[in-house]
Nucleic acid binder design. Structure first.
Length: 507
RNA sequence: GAGCCGGUAGCUCAGCUGGUAGAGCAACGGACUUUUAAUCCGUAGGUCCUGGGUUCGAUCCCCAGCCGGCUCACCA
């Protein structure tokens, strides 16, 4: 890389760097005593302007940031400096700065970090600006940023972009440049942080304890997915990157931590598309003495609050659909929804009937699929996509839910719900199975499925069963896919837009 | 994994079924002390994704590969 940087643009910047050094100007400084952010400086002048007499300068400020535009006019120049809160214009005059410092502006490029000290004033065109008295180089940029140049059409108000940084691949691979150049991308990730902070605040207020459980696990479980495998050299053993936090969090419930939650990365060794990244952020929370009905209410309150705090409204627009996070959300029993689409009672349909229906819908890969998987596939194909408004699909078949308690009065079903929004699964929850004998039987069913070719079924976790044998209180548990929630709340079409560094094939 | 589309200057893109490339912005030199898409004059900048093939000649056509986008599949 070092030797390949022979392009004219890169060479020019190296030469400027060398010229700075020859003039004993430190190109990479050690700090800068900033007194105001750009936003603070602008606000300050707005506030003090009235009390200033004509021509009297405003307050003295020291601002710092990245130079993102420069307009030289001979003996004076204008530039914009961008910091974490926005941009502010600086005005540089030969007779204010002095000949040498003004000349040295020739060695500044767009993208350089500079610090400026000066007084605030308003230009003829009305922009609050820092009249620079001194400036210093904070960090030289040796590579041109793909800075866009925008013009707002005075008649239509439309913004025309003269150049920019559009290529998705480049944006994701060089997220630093994407962020440096796009205000809206920085804002997006601030909203994401706000969403996560609100999730925490909500749970903290309700007495949930935030915990951390292992990412490296000797046995994976808690979801149906293929894991990543890694190797611990000293132990001489394989470990799995977790596919869910579930089984460890429920061990903590056994231990008497009655409300726990974890926000962390899960890893699933599956395909990548606009709703799936191999590592993704999951929130799971568990509450002793609650059942899935209680958890639906918690989820409703949580989402209404997070949506409101993050976006200003409980109603958001996602890809053209208005989505209202207004409790109560619709409840739709799984079996009822599926029977409605199939036009028959599930009890009247054999596995072969279901398989035929699935095949006629063109659902592939049905080899080794048991009744549970067939039902699930049919649900995905027939029902899921229509669930645009927040909808709790409730009471899933037992075969699909090896960690959920049987439904009271309907033992073929479980007390489980998934929340669908915009046709996508956003949350998954149950009345947690706390009968260790039943749990062992469910695990054994899973092992049989694995034997039949289902490579996503659970292995038996003896330690988890042991924990449950000590006694696990009735518990409600919920998992929420944070990235998908962020997508919906920020109206982003792909999960990659809400993950700072999404997975790409290595270059 | 399959289908379709794409990869050309730092960025955004154009390039006629073939004659070894252009624009805007950015850059460089010059003029300009309140501009804001600054303006004006001038200059430079390319592994046309990679490797083969066809051809007198390939950014263009063919084959293979790499990377990406979209759709589908996979993903309780």
């Amino acid at each position: 890389m070092e030797e390949a940087t022979t392009s004219q643009l890169l060479r020019t910047r190296r030469e400027k760097l060398e010229a700075l050094e020859r003039k004993d100007i430190v190109p990479f400084s050690y700090g800068f005593d900033r007194t105001h952010t750009s936003a603070e400086a602008l606000a300050l002048f707005e506030q003090e302007e009235e009390s200033l007499s004509d021509g009297q300068p405003g307050s003295r400020v020291r601002i710092a940031g990245r130079m993102v535009s420069f307009r030289g006019h001979g003996k004076s120049s204008f530039a914009h400096v961008q910091d974490g809160e926005g941009r502010i214009q600086i005005y540089l005059r030969l007779n204010v700065l002095g000949p040498e410092p003004y000349e040295h502006l020739d060695l500044v490029d767009l993208g350089d970090w500079i610090g400026v000290e000066g007084t605030l004033f308003r230009t003829r065109t009305g922009e609050v600006t820092v009249q620079a008295e001194t400036w210093e180089m904070l960090a030289k940029s040796l590579r041109p940023l793909p800075l866009a140049k925008e013009e707002v059409d005075p008649e239509t108000g439309e913004t025309r972009v003269h150049s920019g940084f559009q290529d998705r691949q480049s944006r994701y691979r060089q997220r630093y440049a994407d962020l440096a150049v796009h205000d809206e991308i920085r804002d997006l990730f601030r909203v994401r942080a706000r969403i996560v902070a609100e999730l925490r605040a909500f749970l903290d207020e309700r007495g949930y304890l935030e915990v951390e459980t292992p990412v490296l696990q000797p046995i994976y479980g808690g979801a149906a997915a293929r894991p990543f495998v890694t190797r611990h050299n000293a132990l001489g053993t394989d470990l799995y990157l977790r596919i869910a936090d579930e089984l460890y969090l429920k061990r903590l419930i056994v231990g008497g931590l009655e409300r726990v939650y974890e926000i962390g990365k899960d890893f699933r060794n599956e395909g990548i598309d606009r709703f799936h990244n191999p590592e993704f952020t999951m929130l799971e929370f568990y509450e002793a003495f609650a059942d899935y009905e209680d958890m639906m209410e918690v989820v409703e309150a949580l989402l209404e609050r997070v949506a409101t705090e993050a976006t200003g409204s409980a109603t958001v627009t996602f890809q053209g659909d208005e989505i209202a996070f207004k409790p109560p959300f619709r409840r739709l029993p799984f079996v009822e929804a599926l029977e409605g689409e199939l036009g028959a009672a599930l009890d009247d349909l054999t596995d072969a009937d279901l398989r035929n229906r699935a095949e006629s819908l063109g659902i592939p890969d049905l080899k080794g699929a048991g009744r549970g998987k067939l039902l699930d596939k049919l649900f995905d194909a027939l029902v899921q996509g229509d669930l645009v408004q927040p909808t709790f699909v409730v009471d899933y078949p037992r075969e699909l839910s090896p960690l959920a308690k049987p439904k009271r009065g309907q033992p073929k079903l479980t007390e489980r719900f998934e929340l669908f929004v915009a046709g996508q699964e956003v949350a998954n929850a149950f009345s947690e199975l706390n009968d260790p004998l039943d749990q062992r039987a469910r695990f054994e069913d899973q092992v049989r499925l694995a034997g039949a070719g289902d490579d996503e079924s659970h292995p038996i976790d003896e330690d988890y069963l042991q924990a449950m044998e000590y006694g696990m209180p009735p518990t409600g548990g919920v998992g929420i896919g944070v990235d998908r929630l962020v997508m919906i709340l920020t109206d982003q079409p792909t999960i990659r837009e809400v993950i700072l560094f999404p997975i790409l094939r290595p270059e």
